[in-house]
Design a protein around this nucleic acid. Sequence first.
DNA 1: TTGAAAGCGCTAACAC
DNA 2: GTGTTAGCGCTTTCAA
Lengths: 289, 289
Amino acid sequence: MGVSIKDIAKKVNRSITTVSRALNDYDDVSPKTKKLILETAKEMGYSPNTFAQRLQKQITETIGLVIPTFSPRFSDPFFSELLAGIGNKSADLGFDLLVSTRSPGLDEIKTYKELIDGHRVDGVIVVRTRKQDARIEYLLENKFPFVAFGRTNGEERFSYVDEDGYYGMQLIADHLAGLNHRIISCLTPDPMLAFSQKRLNGLRDGLAKSGIHLQEKYIKNGDLTQKSGYELGSALLDLKERPSAIVACNDLMAFGAMSAAQERGLEVGKDISITGFDDIRCRNIHIPP
Amino acid sequence: MGVSIKDIAKKVNRSITTVSRALNDYDDVSPKTKKLILETAKEMGYSPNTFAQRLQKQITETIGLVIPTFSPRFSDPFFSELLAGIGNKSADLGFDLLVSTRSPGLDEIKTYKELIDGHRVDGVIVVRTRKQDARIEYLLENKFPFVAFGRTNGEERFSYVDEDGYYGMQLIADHLAGLNHRIISCLTPDPMLAFSQKRLNGLRDGLAKSGIHLQEKYIKNGDLTQKSGYELGSALLDLKERPSAIVACNDLMAFGAMSAAQERGLEVGKDISITGFDDIRCRNIHIPP
DNA sequence: TTGAAAGCGCTAACAC
DNA sequence: GTGTTAGCGCTTTCAA
């Protein structure tokens, strides 16, 4: 094990109390002693035992993040950036980030239980909020601090960060209506995800304002991957009555749909309109001519 | 705070020692007492304070993972799957996974220092090994347990998990030579990455066996992204003497190069050969006709 | 300005 | 089989 305040205390001939105070920059330590202690500490390569500190202070300085892995959304660049953002900010604030990856279901809830009951984290971040979210129910029941990325279905009993998918989709609807599209299709994610319905509703309502009806058969559920976008896009484009616009609920599916269109000799942006949602980095290479 | 063994001890009228022993399933506790204690514990919703346990046992049951974020390799599906694999396995083994995201450089090393000196982790996983790797030097110097994903430059002073990129590229070289390609190009990642050189050497040596010389001007450094593959691929395809094959060091760059080829009216798999490396999931949608 | 002592929740020698 | 005691490394009253 490493150097402890006890070792420092012995070396400088002071009590561990004084050492602790000096180290924590209390002002009831003489400048001289403080200086001596600080120097000795550095010299001896001291660094505090996190667990001892946390046990004593009864806090963890740790944020929990359980990543749901069931759909490949996990490997979405959007998600990676989210993780990087959370990771960097946590580190900057001096918080540890405790990450688990679990598939939705019992194991997932069990992981939350362990984090909470074992006092391992001060709070958690819930990502990929679902319409009916067992994780959130559990946290709410246990009055445990958390922030969700995405709202659940209209409820606001907790803190969240979210984008306005409903409004965003309306903008898209307006844009497409302005381009005189009549048959418009939509690629949605797993309907269980909270943002799925919001975006779909936004599109539906937005189109309705322009007198366009979004037909059920032109709505396809995918899993947010490029592959899914390609497959569903292909299916849509092979319909007798082909849609003239494809609205994808995320960028990755939009890319997939673009591939499908190109494969059929369609020029994206001219013969067909395809929209995404996220603004991920690699979009540039897919900008239509 | 939650229930402690003290609370249980009081309730069942036993010493905390006995409670601790019962909870840890020692066999010097009478079955009756053990049963009573276990039931009471469950009833009271007891779960051990992880920090107290760790402080006492002097272990952390935690693995550290510092993700380098400087290049977008981070949002590579390949990398996401790696993370999911590490995350799931850690959880299964009862280990916490402490994740930081830092750009290579001083902050990164500082983060390692903090993890190690603060006794926060039992060991770390080093990912995206570099040819000259300050992280590994630091860990080696401090004799701290770690495993690297990828070897450094030929050295084997530590444990690692790695693929045989040299051999893999030779297979590719053989394949391309068999297709009678003469001008072959290569898209590499940042040369600072350990696997970069291995793969390039494998390709170079493999081609040499078939009497093909891999020319320097046909080797382009990118950053492993699709965008990078697109840009470098475009540059290569716009050369007067256009290569008939593009060997990308990862799948994402290969996809980018494919887009570049398609944009120029080339049919991938017929007019030009393009190879990747990784076997990421979404590859399917890019299978040439 | 400093130190002694208690205690965070737990485990583990050592007695009885 | 059970309890007493010490101690992991640290912070924080309370006295001096």
